[in-house]
Design a protein around this nucleic acid. Sequence first.
DNA 1: TAGACGTAGA
DNA 2: TCTACGTCTA
Lengths: 179, 179
Amino acid sequence: ARGIKAGKQLIGSVPGIEVNDQFQYRVELALAGLHRPYQGGIDYMKHGGMIIATSVVSSGSYADDLENPDVLIYSGQGGNLVGRDKRPEDQKLERGNLALKNSISVKNPVRVVHGSKETKASGSDARTKLVLTYNYHGLYTVERYWDEVGPHGKLVYMFELKRMPGQPELAWKEAKKLD
Amino acid sequence: ARGIKAGKQLIGSVPGIEVNDQFQYRVELALAGLHRPYQGGIDYMKHGGMIIATSVVSSGSYADDLENPDVLIYSGQGGNLVGRDKRPEDQKLERGNLALKNSISVKNPVRVVHGSKETKASGSDARTKLVLTYNYHGLYTVERYWDEVGPHGKLVYMFELKRMPGQPELAWKEAKKLD
DNA sequence: TAGACGTAGA
DNA sequence: TCTACGTCTA
């Protein structure tokens, strides 16, 4: 694999990629042109003088709401809310968060990729293990946003994304919580 | 690329990999079976009740000495000596550092991969840019180790590795420092 | 659970 | 220069 190069940044559907397509690593999302940042959850681009969001990845690190697959409540980025040894801070309405906010008025489609734990047969022995897998959920629009104060006492932006109609049904099973 | 799996851990040469083979990403080294850790500089395994080093990657993040390609002075790991916002600490003779020390008496071959900046033509425009590239330098033995006090006042372990004779010459050019 | 010579893009 | 919902092994 010499010269891995991410696909060009697009708005909306990516040719050759269909709803329910599955990926195992973030680098594959970049390669496919679905979502370029290797770690960042929000991808965006300049469009008509402002930045707008082009894709988001929800990987379960935040308290996103996924009960209804047609509506995604997505937490903003920043504020050091993930990771140990980080002092939490208020999130700011900049970069990815600003891009998502701008996409509300622009009404552009945003690709949504959902990371979920999936059970997978583990080679030679009969047991299974949980593997994080990324599923393409299709195009959404950003409907609204608000801010709340999280359990750490800091400001968190929340974005509501709604799935655009006329797309294939989601073949999506989340791994049962193992309590 | 479904189910990327690192090669099995070997001591010495890896079948199919030759001196001067070149790689672009750490994940490729893991895939090839040359060096499994994605970030760690020292790979090791249990052997006869102790851990011994199997490979090291020098990427220029530490003050390693590479003037003479037949002798590699390699800095130990740990102590938070790389990265911002980290308070430096004394390195400890554990994990990779302990493995390298044990390899002195075991005299087992250790694979050496050298990361260096290489000039590369940059697509459509005529300019070049520097890209970190990993070159396989072949098998070395660990000759000795010592500790020093670094500029930060903390203990750093240093290991001297010597290239084993009878291997192909290194076709190795480091990018000139751009001052 | 946490460490580790990672990466790309802004 | 810095951020960012990474990813592996111990």
